[in-house]
Simulated scan of single mutants.
Amino acid sequence: MDDHESARIRAFLARVGLPGLVDVHTHFMPERVLRKVWAYFDAVGPLTRMEWPITYRHEEDERVALLRAFGVRAYTSMLYPHKPGMARWLNDWAAEFAARTPDCLRTATLFPETGVESYVREAVEGGARVFKAHLQVGAYDPNDERLDPVWGLLAEAAVPVVVHCGSGPAPGKHTGPEPVGRLLARHPALPLIVAHLGMPEYADFLALAERYEQVRLDTTMAFTDFGERFAPFPREARERLADLGDRILLGTDFPNIPYPYIHQLEALERLELGNEWLRAVCYGNGVRLFGLDDSGLGGSGHSL
């Protein structure tokens, strides 16, 4: 365990006045799936097109222990299918992982396929707190008619969906703001969390958040030295970040990041939007969204 980094993160928490962190974008998945993801990054896959060393290439129990040492009080197990027939199995694994990992918000996923409404309903009724949709890796249109009842179900249940819909680090057939804009026009109450702040189409996704009150954005990789190299955030949009301070959420992509966890936090701090903004982004907004408090995860019986 990296005691030095833990100390730096604890110093950040003390400096900002935070009791801990809520991270809406962390990855835990079946070990053989995660190993394939890491192999993809190692091979400089076509979606990344760049060297991408994995900083936290550890066994699962060590990764869980690291997040706790970092002061992360609640996090997710973002996982996603790239073909039909995977999502239900991934959801079963995620339910089991959350059951044995009290600080993890039970996470689920989906894919446009026969039976998707059934297994999404099962996941919601079983206690899923957040979904992941990856339009880039899954290469599907969020407006696929097979998903329409699913979006309605999730909107009615008020279960947020973290969606990778921006075109970074490489565009996909269905990435960008236009497909998500069409989706929200039909389901304006759908609680979407735009991953990576919509990188690189930051301004367009900020506009969607300004138009739809249930749209939020997570900070994953945004403002870091790594992210700024290929998708710099426009300086003129910083004021809009401040105005949307109640709907920006900390996300990091742990463990699949090519730099230390503390760098994401310090990258947010150097925006100079103030400690109140940082407290909301790194903790308060997640606490409110997921109904967390100092004694439990919103009725789940899990201790923070």
Rank of each mutant, 00 (worst) to 15 (best):
A7P: 02
A7I: 01
A7G: 08
R8F: 03
V16M: 10
V22C: 11
K36I: 11
K36G: 15
A39Q: 14
A43C: 09
M50V: 06
E51I: 12
E60C: 11
E60N: 00
D61W: 05
V64H: 02
A65Q: 05
G71L: 08
G71E: 02
T76S: 13
M78T: 06
M78Y: 04
Y80A: 12
Y80T: 04
H82M: 14
K83H: 09
P84V: 10
P84G: 10
A87V: 07
R88K: 15
R88I: 07
A95E: 10
F97E: 01
R100K: 13
T101R: 05
P102R: 12
D103E: 13
A108H: 09
F111P: 00
V124L: 15
V124M: 10
E125V: 10
E125M: 11
G126P: 03
A128F: 05
R129P: 02
F131V: 06
K132Q: 00
H134Q: 11
L135C: 06
G138N: 02
A139L: 08
D141R: 01
P142N: 05
P142C: 11
D144P: 00
L147I: 02
L154W: 00
A155T: 02
V159R: 06
V159D: 03
V163P: 00
P169S: 13
A170Q: 14
T175H: 02
G181S: 12
G181D: 00
L183F: 05
L184T: 00
A185V: 03
H187C: 06
P188F: 12
A189H: 04
L192I: 04
I193G: 01
M199Q: 08
P200A: 07
P200M: 11
A209E: 04
R211N: 02
R211V: 02
Y212D: 00
Q214A: 15
R216G: 03
T220G: 13
F223G: 05
G227V: 09
A231C: 04
P232M: 14
P234F: 13
A237R: 15
E239H: 11
R240E: 03
L241S: 04
I248G: 03
I248L: 14
L249F: 15
L250P: 04
F254W: 01
N256Y: 13
P258A: 06
Y261S: 00
I262V: 15
Q264E: 08
L271V: 05
N275H: 13
E276S: 09
Y283W: 15
N285M: 11
V287A: 15
L289D: 01
L289H: 05
F290T: 05
D293V: 06
S300D: 10
